[in-house]
């Protein structure tokens, strides 16, 4: 347990330290979301309909960005060897890394989504529900994304490859997440779409670390 906490604490400190902080992915998220009104025009009803789904797309792309270096840096620097020598199971350590990324990057993105949703003409009352949905969805993105990040960890400049590997796993959460956001905009935030989003997130939480650990063990050889 202390091993899992130690890794969580270290990765969280790294996520918040200068240089590799949450500022870049959050800024990317806001910038990508900002391109929408610039491209479709500031017509209020149109923005209200597609604003929340666009936030989900921007969040998925921002998650891809942070996944690229997640295991790659550890593999290059020999840090993965130390994880393999830990008494804690590698599955739990992979989950700790994803959890640190969720707290360090996923939650800031979800928090930034609330003002962004209002700027995109979502009803202010729904902004909280949209941010909550994104907070849950970010967990699905990052835990499911572990698989691709671990499989491509030894590949140089793996950004495009990881995107290709991971996007099929993003389909279920983005489906229900955007549907839940649309429901929130209509004033019914916690309907079936929200519950199905939680369901797909639980799937990712359970299976992502197992598959990632299997891939990481192969990277050590």
């Amino acid at each position: 347990m202390s091993a899992i906490l130690a890794l969580f604490r270290r990765d969280l400190a790294l996520a918040w330290s200068a240089g590799s902080g949450a500022a870049a992915p959050v800024g990317f998220f806001l910038g990508a979301a900002m391109l929408l009104p610039l491209s479709v025009g500031a017509e209020r009803t149109l923005l209200g309909a597609i604003g929340a789904p666009i936030l989900w797309i921007a969040a998925a792309l921002a998650s891809l960005m942070v996944l690229e270096r997640l295991f790659q840096a550890d593999l290059e620097e020999g840090g993965l060897d130390q994880m393999l020598l830990s008494p804690a199971p590698l599955e739990a350590l992979a989950a700790a890394k994803a959890a640190a990324l969720w707290v360090g990057v996923g939650l800031p993105i979800a928090a930034a989504a609330a003002p962004a949703a209002i700027a995109l003409q979502a009803p202010p009352a729904a902004a909280g529900a949209i941010a909550l949905g994104l907070a849950i969805g970010e967990a699905a993105f990052l835990f499911a994304g572990l698989v691709g990040a671990a499989a491509a960890a030894s590949v140089k400049r793996a950004g495009v490859l990881i995107a290709l590997l991971v996007l099929p796993f993003f389909a279920p959460p983005i489906l229900f997440g955007a549907a839940a956001a649309a429901a929130a905009a209509e004033g019914a935030p916690f309907g079936p779409a929200f519950l199905l989003l939680c369901g797909t997130t639980l799937f990712a939480l359970a299976l992502g670390p197992i598959a990632a650990a299997a891939a990481l063990r192969l990277q050590a050889t």
Binding site: L14, S17, G19, S20, A73, E76, E77, G78, G79, D81
Partner: peptide, 9 residues
């Protein structure tokens, strides 16, 4: 060969 260090830590 690798020291397993993180520059920011």
């Amino acid at each position: 060969h690798g020291d397993g260090l993180k520059g920011g830590l």
